[in-house]
Structures are given as C-alpha cells and as structure tokens.
Design a protein around this nucleic acid. Sequence first.
DNA 1: TATTGTTATACTCTATAACTATA
DNA 2: TATAGTTATAGAGTATAACAATA
Lengths: 140, 140
Amino acid sequence: MTRDSLPSLANDLRIACQRVSRRVRFDSTHELPPHHVAALGWLRDVTRSPGELAALEQVSRPSMTRTVNCLVAAGYVARADDPADGRRQVLSLTDAGRAVLRRTARNRDDWMVQRLSGLSASELALVRAATDLLDRVVAP
Amino acid sequence: MTRDSLPSLANDLRIACQRVSRRVRFDSTHELPPHHVAALGWLRDVTRSPGELAALEQVSRPSMTRTVNCLVAAGYVARADDPADGRRQVLSLTDAGRAVLRRTARNRDDWMVQRLSGLSASELALVRAATDLLDRVVAP
DNA sequence: TATTGTTATACTCTATAACTATA
DNA sequence: TATAGTTATAGAGTATAACAATA
C-alpha cells in the first residue's frame, strides 16, 4: 500500500460504499421514501426546526416544508411553536415515528446481515476494524 | 468477533457506507445528475441496451428512455440498431462520455483522497483489504 | 432590516398504460 | 403471442421568487 495508490483506493472504496448504500436502499422496505427516513433520522435524539432539517439535508426550505407536512400528516412528527421565537417551529419524533424508524433500520440491516453471514470469523474481524476506521475517517 | 454481534456490525457498516455516499454526493460536481453518471458507468466496459440499463438501475424502461435520450443528445452515448435484433438498440460510450465519467470520478474522489491521506500505511492496507472484501460481499 | 416558514409556479425524474415495430 | 422501445399522462420531489409574521 503506497501513497501512489491512494486515488485508486479512494475510488474503489467509494464505489463499494455506494454499492452498499444502493443495495440497502433497494432491498429495504418501501414503507417510507428515503428522504423521509433521512429527515426522521435527524430527529432521533433531538428536536429541530424545519430550517435546520433543510440545512442538514441540503435541500431548500420549501422542499423541507413539504416533507415535514407529509411526516406530520402521517403522524410521525409532532410540530409545535417555539415559545422563545415566534417564527420558529420545533419538530420532534412521535412514538409512531420512532417505531417506523426502528422498523426501517431493522429491515435495512436484515439484508446486510445475510450478506455478512457468509464470511469467516477473521473476515468479519477485518470488516469490523475497517468499519471503525471508516467511521473515524469520514466523521464530520 | 462473534456471530452475535453480526447485526451490530451490519448496522455500523451500513451507516458508515451511507455516510460516505452522502458526503461524496454532496461534494461532487454537478456536471451531471447522479442517475446520468450511474447509467454511463454501466457502459464503461461493455455495450448494453436501454432495457438492460433500466434493469440494472432498477427504473422503468420509459424512465431509462428519457435518460438515454439526454445522454445521446449531450453526446456522451452513441445509439445504434442491433443488427441481430431489429427491436434492440446498442448503446456505447463516446469519447466525450468517457471523459465526463473520468472527470466526475476524479472530483468525487478528491474528498476521499484527502480523508484517507491522514491514515498510516497499515491502516490503508486494512481499508484496502476491507474494500475488496466488501466488493465481493455485495456483488450482485 | 434580517430571518423563519409558507405559497405560487415550474422543472425534472419517476411510474403505468397504451402504442409501434420486430421476433 | 411476446418483447424492445416510445409516447402520453400523471404524481412526487425539488427549486426559485414572492409573501407573511416575527425578531
């Protein structure tokens, strides 16, 4: 592994990761469209405003308004006025939202578990180490 | 690494891969929309019909017709009748298509190269091995 | 005057159904 | 009759511009 092969490694790694993402997306449930899942994910641990979600997902505020409307209508997200700032809204996950998020994650992982189950113990250890490393490398 | 931790590994690996995909998508150029790049990618080494591309990308044939029309109009893809089957078309990359694909890949990988450059030689070797393994695991 | 969120409007990508040409 | 590709049409997601309410 030399410095020179960095671009090649970067390319291969990107393709492998995109392939995983793609397959996971295709094979998981169609209960919710991907961008709805993404928006819900940002609300897993904290409350956020629609504007914050738009920034995090890098979409326009009108687009996020539409997405949030769907999620509120579906009962996955609760919307409240911010007592500290009359312009702002505070979005939070409902129990139903938490449940659908859990369901989606589980279905997504089923496919991956199936794929990984064919590996040997040493291969699994390798993937484990690489995953941790990758996590550190791409951390924001 | 025990069997029991497989679901946890699957989850972590999925998240890491999705994070990479996400960052790459945001940071890459907007010269071509993602699904155009994807379609071009399937033509990198072989010729294929529109129907094959639709199946590979898991979109409807009419959608792929539209995409192919754009790529042909842009000069990235050449379209010819299949001499062996009058219903079929044969699509292939043009030089311009190959160039735009190369350009896109380079821009996408810049970010990744930068991130990976902070790793040690042994860490890079680990990522290399895991990438190859992942490729095999997720292969269609 | 700046910011948060919404409404109005248009464009792109997608799908299903119906059509044409070929096998 | 079945298949490859197109056309017609509609639905969903996105963006920009203009607006309302609040800071």
